[in-house]
Design a protein around this nucleic acid. Structure first.
Ligand SMILES: [Mn+2]
Ligand SMILES: [Mn+2]
Ligand SMILES: [Zn+2]
Ligand SMILES: [Zn+2]
Lengths: 143, 143
DNA sequence: CTCACACATTAGAATTATTCTAATGTGTTG
DNA sequence: CAACACATTAGAATAATTCTAATGTGTGAG
């Protein structure tokens, strides 16, 4: 009891601190979403999956707010957007340098740690352009 | 005159041959679209850009047919879909192994030949999965 | 060469993810 | 405890894409 309550206080407190550091007001909705996103390890969510999750947890947050929040968190550097599917946008709690396996059929993203894959030979971009990032997506399928 | 007419005959004939080989009926619309797509070198198009192009060339093809055709060509292995933008699907006439620069702001894709970039250290996928392809996108921006 | 018919095209409606609008609510600061 | 800037929300709007169901056409059999 003591431990559980200390843990959930810590989670909300951590979320609140993280939001303040990012210059975002710790509203009920943002604290709830940040709690779900950053409590456990690295996660990959879509707006809908996160909305379902927060709803099933009994918390009332509109889908518009989930979209707003995901984009605000992304701008604040707390999340990163991953583009692997033409139909859905994924958001990743792991903002560090890393790559992904993507299982298209099931919409599943799996992290590949940043040091694992080496990309050599990236050419100098055409004049006037500079490299922003290099994304590697390993598309996989069930055997 | 002779040369021009021979060239355009050749282009239509080539398109027709290519379509037959792929098991697709060479309809007026498919021949026109194949002509635009495969006549010149490697190209990256969206459904809308191709529809605009074919329309401005004075040919009447519906947007639905452009979508149908792009997907049929892709299934037939004449095109390959490139996923780099959450908002639009790109189709690539270069179906060989190669990678891309992507200029998000302008929706511009630039080929990087297949031998240029080396990706090392791709881990074995989780059990039950096998690698379908490895995509590298070099996201660039204007200086 | 013609006809039948499987296949293709099309307009417009439908779908789906996402964004916008504009009204209402709330965290923060003094 | 205001005041107000910022946030949330329902529902409408948007935009890419797909679907529907009616019409057109390429082609192989005869
Ligand atoms: Mn998005
Ligand atoms: Mn869409
Ligand atoms: Zn990740
Ligand atoms: Zn290409």
């Amino acid at each position: 009891m003591v431990k559980a309550s200390r843990e959930s206080k810590t989670s909300a407190a951590q979320a609140t601190a993280r939001l303040r550091q990012a210059g975002l007001r710790p509203t009920r909705q943002r604290v709830e979403l940040a709690g779900l996103l950053f409590q456990s390890g690295d996660r990959h969510v879509t707006a809908e999956s996160l909305h379902d999750e927060v709803s099933h947890a009994g918390v009332k947050v509109s889908l518009a707010t989930v979209y707003n929040t995901l984009h605000q968190f992304t701008e604040a550097g707390l999340l990163r957007q991953v583009i692997v599917d033409a139909a859905r946008s994924y958001f990743d709690t792991n903002t560090g340098d890393h790559q992904h396996f993507f299982l298209e059929k099931e919409g599943l993203l799996i992290d590949i740690p940043g040091e694992t894959i080496a990309v050599a030979g990236v050419p100098t971009p055409p004049a006037g352009l500079s490299v922003d990032r290099v994304d590697v997506v390993v598309r996989v399928r069930r055997n």
